[in-house]
């Protein structure tokens, strides 16, 4: 059942992509329109619209880039490093 569902999704890659983007947009619009942020803990949450969306995107990207950069700096190495 699970396999069939995934295969069915895979037949419509474009639609899935568009639907996902629409869902993300809907979430942002919903939080802009309907969520009361006046009782939030910090100034940024109260005054920047869609703050957490920006935050999530930036956090993920920054983590990915930091990890990639650290990996290139020499943290990542060949697999048999300890075996020599």
């Amino acid at each position: 059942m699970i396999v069939r569902f995934i295969d069915w999704l895979k037949q419509w890659p474009r639609t899935v992509r568009v639907l996902s983007l629409v869902a993300a947009a809907a979430i942002v619009i919903w939080s802009l329109a309907a969520v009361d942020t006046h009782h939030a803990h910090t100034w940024v949450e109260q005054h920047i619209p869609g703050f957490w969306a920006i935050f999530g995107f930036l956090a993920a990207s920054v983590l990915i880039f930091i990890a990639g950069w650290l990996g290139k700096c020499g943290i990542q190495t060949r697999e048999d490093y300890y075996d020599r």
């Binding site: 993300a24 979430i27 939080s31 999530g56």
Partner: peptide
């Protein structure tokens, strides 16, 4: 509701970042 909104935003846009990167 604010907590739900916060979580969903973060998740959705993390997924977006994943898609791009």
């Amino acid at each position: 509701i604010p907590h739900m909104a916060e979580t969903l935003q973060i998740l959705a846009f993390t997924a977006l970042a994943f898609y791009f990167l």
